[in-house]
Amino acid sequence: MKNLVQLLALAGLCLATTVGAQMPPPQPPTIAVSGHGEVTALPDLARLSLAADALDGEVKRAEAEVNRVVRRYLEVLGKSGIEARDISTTSISLQPEYTWDETARQQKLVGYRARRDILVTVRDLDRLGDAILGATEAGVNHVSPPALESSQAETLGREALARAARDAQARAQALATALGVKLGSARVVREAGQAMPPPQPYKVMAMRAEAAMDSGNQQMGLNTGEIHIAADVSVEFDLIAR
Rank of each mutant, 00 (worst) to 15 (best):
M1Y: 03
M1H: 08
A11W: 07
G12P: 07
G12V: 09
C14M: 14
T18D: 06
V19L: 15
G20L: 07
G20H: 07
P24H: 00
P29F: 08
G35L: 03
G35K: 01
G37E: 01
T40D: 09
T40V: 10
A41P: 03
D44F: 00
R47P: 04
S49F: 07
A51I: 03
D53C: 10
G57K: 09
G57R: 14
G57I: 09
R61G: 01
A62W: 02
A62K: 04
A64C: 03
E65F: 04
R68E: 13
R68Q: 14
V70W: 00
R72I: 04
R72Q: 13
L74Y: 06
L74M: 14
V76M: 09
L77S: 02
K79W: 12
S80A: 15
G81A: 12
E83L: 13
S88Q: 10
T90L: 11
S93N: 09
T99G: 11
T99N: 10
T99D: 14
T99Y: 08
D101Y: 03
Q107F: 12
K108Y: 02
V110P: 02
Y112K: 05
R113C: 00
R115C: 03
R116L: 02
D117G: 07
V120P: 01
T121H: 09
L125D: 10
D126H: 13
A131K: 04
L133I: 15
E137W: 08
E137V: 12
A138D: 04
N141I: 04
N141F: 01
P145T: 09
S151F: 02
T155V: 14
A164D: 02
R166A: 12
A168Q: 02
R171L: 10
R171I: 07
A172D: 00
Q173C: 03
L175M: 13
T177R: 10
L179V: 05
V189F: 11
E191H: 13
E191T: 11
Q194V: 13
A195S: 15
P199Y: 04
P199L: 05
Q200L: 15
K203Y: 11
A206L: 06
M207T: 14
R208M: 07
R208C: 02
R208V: 12
A212S: 10
D214Y: 08
D214A: 14
Q218D: 15
Q219N: 11
G221S: 08
L222T: 08
E226H: 11
I229M: 06
A231V: 00
D232Q: 15
V233M: 03
V235A: 04
D238L: 08
L239A: 01
I240Y: 00
A241N: 13
R242S: 13
R242M: 10
